[in-house]
Nucleic acid binder design. Structure first.
Length: 288
DNA sequence: AAAGCGTGGGT
DNA sequence: TACCCAAGCTT
């Protein structure tokens, strides 16, 4: 046992949020849906959509039985709507190849559309209590500070970083699974990217970054996504117009959603290419 | 391996 | 007001 374990586990016991995808009553499917939705989207915005999703589609097969466009529509404004298609595709694989049960093995999870290293480890750990290194942005930041003594982790996961996380993983499955969610929660609530609440941190006395006097980040500039005028914004506008309509949308309506014709045409084509939109006649488009 | 992919709340 | 940034994945 590392000396970091007890303070973090105790803190989690006292401060963990009650979330619908946590706890004994949550199905593995509920956990999986939450993990897809939480990929780059904050908890507060996921909560209502997750609830509606689980009520409408209680199992993977229920979702798989519907057109992909229904998933895109129900995804609402969570952002990155390709995740809705991937969740639908993953549900289809689970329904057809896994007996409608979310797999528990990391390798089976990793093979699903939209599931990468983090999500596979998270589902195996949170839904099934398996022992896995769960490395998300929160965990990486906590370890960067507490262990490595720097404010932020590197852009990409390093070998050393993974070794630190592996070395800190408790030996038994149940404790490892609690540890994983506890470190994540600590990063989400206390060891935040900006304005960390070190006064409330159970690791304050053990934190290398704090011991070093909170040195400022001196690595390469972290990339900031531009937004205004990008294809992402244009695609978002076009897809919103389709979501907001019950049926096919005429080209003239999409023209109103984005003024620049060249960009609008390019983005519409890319949405079709991505299978987020389908042509519905010569001058109309719809959700698939 | 770096860029592309949405959205909205917080500061 | 402009950033910053949030449980990543894919190509």
């Amino acid at each position: 046992m590392s000396e970091l374990h007890e303070p973090v586990l105790q803190w989690y016991d006292d401060h963990a949020r009650e979330l619908p995808w946590r706890g004994a009553g949550a199905s593995a499917w509920s956990v999986m849906v939450s993990e897809f939705m939480l990929q780059q989207t904050p908890v507060a915005r996921v909560l209502p959509v997750h609830e509606a999703w689980l009520r409408r589609w209680p199992t993977p097969a229920d979702l798989a039985a519907e057109p992909t466009g229904e998933a895109v529509r129900a995804w609402g404004r969570l952002g990155y709507p390709r995740r809705a298609l991937r969740l639908h595709a993953a549900a289809t694989v689970i329904a057809e190849q896994h007996g409608n049960q979310v797999p528990s093995a990391y390798a089976d999870l990793l093979a699903l559309p939209g599931v990468g290293d983090y999500t596979a480890a998270a589902i195996a750990s949170f839904a099934y209590g398996r022992r896995h290194v769960v490395l998300d942005t929160n965990v990486r930041r906590v370890f960067a500070r507490a262990v490595q003594g720097v404010e932020f982790p590197s852009a990409a996961v390093t070998r050393a970083e993974r070794e630190v996380a592996t070395g800190l993983l408790p030996d038994d499955d149940a404790t490892a699974a609690t540890w994983a969610v506890a470190v994540m929660e600590l990063g989400a609530l206390v060891c935040t990217a900006s304005n960390p609440r070190c006064g409330d941190c159970p690791l304050a006395e053990l934190c290398a970054w704090r011991a070093a006097g909170h040195p400022a980040y001196d690595g390469p500039a972290r990339k900031v996504q531009t937004w205004a005028g990008t294809d992402r914004q244009c695609r978002g506008r076009l897809l919103a117009a389709l979501r907001d309509s019950d049926g096919p949308v005429h080209r003239s309506t999409l023209d109103l959603a984005w003024a620049d014709e060249t960009q609008r045409t390019r983005c519409l084509a890319s949405l079709v290419e991505d299978r987020l939109v389908v042509a519905a006649g010569p001058d109309a488009y719809a959700l698939p």
